[in-house]
Design a binder for these strands. Structure first.
Lengths: 139, 139
DNA sequence: TATAAAATGATAATATTTATCAAGTAAGAA
DNA sequence: TTCTTACTTGATAAATATTATCATTTTATA
C-alpha cells in the first residue's frame, strides 16, 4: 500500500521512502522529523536527516501525508492526509486524532472577504497519563 | 491600560514592555517576535531581540497575551488573551480573529480519557488581496 | 536616596529547518 | 540485460528561530 502511495504520487520507489511511510503508517504519535530520523537509524543506519526532511516535504507536497502545526517547537507529521481534528495534551504534547464532522458555519459578515476552504480544530486537554502523574504529585 | 495590564501581572513597568504592548494593542497581524523586534527598533533603537522574546514569554505566561501556533516557521503573538478562533490565508499567512462561540461537543467515547479544557479553530482560506492577485496572474 | 530584586542588552549556544552538491540509484529505453 | 538520464540520497554547510547566560542597568519600595 505504501508502494502504491509513492507511485501514485509520481515518485520513485526508494527504500528510504518505504521505511518512512511504513513507520508513519498506524503511528498515532504525530512524530517530528527528529523522531522519525531516530526511528529510521535503528533499521537504516545510513539514512540522513536531510533525507527525512526531503521525504516528508515531498510526501506532504503530494498530499500523501499532512504536516500539523500544533507544536510551537517543531513541525509534526500525520500519516492521515484526510481532514480531521486533533486532541492535544497541553502537558506532554501528545496528539491524538479526532474524527468528527462538525458543521462550522461562518456568517458572511465575519469572513472578511475570505473564501473559506477548510478548517481544523484543536481540542486542548490533559491526557490520562498526565492526569495520573499530576494526582500522584499532589498526594 | 497597558500600564495596568503589566501591574496586574505583577511585573515591573519598563519602557520596553510598554512599547511592546502598545505595538500589539489593536494589532491584527499576529506578528512574530522578529516582526515586533523590527517595529521596536524604529522607536527604540537599543532594544534587544532577547528583550522582545523575554517580554513576550513573560506576558504570555501571565496571561496578558497569547501565543498562536499557526505558522510552521515561527511563533506568532496575539494581543487578545481571551479564547477565540482564527482565519488564516494559506497563501500569504495573514491571520484574522474570528469571534464566534461554537459549541463543540465531543462524545465521551472519542475523548480517549482526556479531560478537555478548551479548543481553537483554524479556518483556512484565501484572503481578498490574494484572491485579487491570483485572478490578475491568470489573466 | 539606598537597596534588593527584576529586567535589559549583548552575545553565545542550541534547535530546527533549508540549501548545496557530489555520488548513488531507480525506471524506462534500447 | 545494459544504458542513460533524471531523480534521490547523504554529508555537510548555511540559514532561521529560539533559548540561555550574565554583567550592567533599572524599577519599586523602604
Amino acid at each position: 500500500m505504501d508502494r502504491q502511495k509513492i507511485k501514485e504520487a509520481g515518485l520513485k520507489l526508494t527504500p528510504q521512502r518505504l521505511a518512512i511511510l511504513d513507520y508513519l503508517r498506524d503511528n498515532l504519535e504525530h512524530p517530528s522529523a527528529e523522531d522519525i530520523y531516530k526511528a529510521m537509524l535503528e533499521r537504516f543506519p545510513t539514512m540522513s536527516l536531510a533525507t527525512v526532511y526531503n521525504t516528508l516535504e515531498t510526501l506532504r507536497e503530494k498530499g500523501a501525508i499532512q504536516e500539523v502545526t500544533i507544536d510551537p517547537q517543531k513541525k509534526r507529521f500525520d500519516p492521515n492526509p484526510r481532514p480531521h481534528h486533533h486532541l492535544i495534551c497541553t502537558r506532554c504534547k501528545r496528539v491524538l486524532d479526532i474524527h468528527i464532522d462538525y458543521q462550522l458555519h461562518v456568517p458572511e459578515a465575519k469572513k472578511n472577504g475570505f473564501e473559506i476552504v477548510g478548517n481544523h480544530i484543536e481540542f486542548y486537554g490533559i491526557c490520562p497519563d498526565c492526569r495520573l502523574k499530576m494526582s500522584v504529585m499532589q498526594s
